[in-house]
Design a protein around this nucleic acid. Sequence first.
DNA 1: TGTATTTTTGTATCTTTGTATCATTGTATC
DNA 2: GATACAATGATACAAAGATACAAAAATACA
Lengths: 143, 143
Amino acid sequence: MGSLNDLVIDFRSGQPIYLQIVEQIRQKVASGELKPGDQLPTVRQLAAELRVNFNTVARAYRLLDEAGLISTQHGRGTYIWETPSPETLQTIRQQGLESLTRRYLAQAAQLGCTAEEVAKVINPMLERWRESGELPKPEPQEF
Amino acid sequence: MGSLNDLVIDFRSGQPIYLQIVEQIRQKVASGELKPGDQLPTVRQLAAELRVNFNTVARAYRLLDEAGLISTQHGRGTYIWETPSPETLQTIRQQGLESLTRRYLAQAAQLGCTAEEVAKVINPMLERWRESGELPKPEPQEF
DNA sequence: TGTATTTTTGTATCTTTGTATCATTGTATC
DNA sequence: GATACAATGATACAAAGATACAAAAATACA
């Protein structure tokens, strides 16, 4: 498990607990004490160590996740974010948006979709993205 | 065994793993890449490939089974059951397209692209596809 | 062949993990 | 004091994993 045995919470400092957790994990990542792929303690483990509600730890983890520092995975655990290897980063940069787009259209075509169908699906999403800055989240589907 | 060597799981997407499996198998059936009678990998094989618990694969298979797309047989294996009716095929295509599109936009966003940039790239390609029926060849991609 | 045993396959159940929602508490502001 | 809001806690839930099991197939052996 992640080496977070030395986290210290000051309950009287006036600074929220979840921010104290966030700050200290950030420092450990910055200093290299925590490396990509390292697993952090579960929200319940860390909460028990710190004598704190696990939702408070979950809140800290959520912030760090949104900041891209860690990756929390439902049912699996929480990990320091794995930076893509330099090669794949380079590949992505080189291939870029056009390549990504070609592949997307090819996959859509293989599904048997027409250009019209693709346009009808992607245009609203693009519009929404442009206006709200939000990407559509996958909705749960049922059968 | 079934050709599921190219299934890709994104552990950070927020979409449950079992749904990612379901979605990609549905797409392969809809596109004809998987045909009735084809045997799928066993739950343990696929789980090992994807680095996932086999119960997660079993859950995906169960959903597909309940949807009538595959037939899982205790002690024997799992097989594609039938090509869905045209209506369900259409539904699958639609959902698959939406799923593909979300992934595409997410990847574009990760590249740092804006909605405008994406539109500027994809619209000409769509236009050309609509008019000439041709779409640019994607170069092979791995990751 | 026929049968026993082992292996391979999917299933059932429970535990562990993170998430969502609401309730409680403290604090600031009026 | 009253109200609003932020921080924390309580509870219920969902996703994923661990373990033990059952059914079918494969194998060994007489």
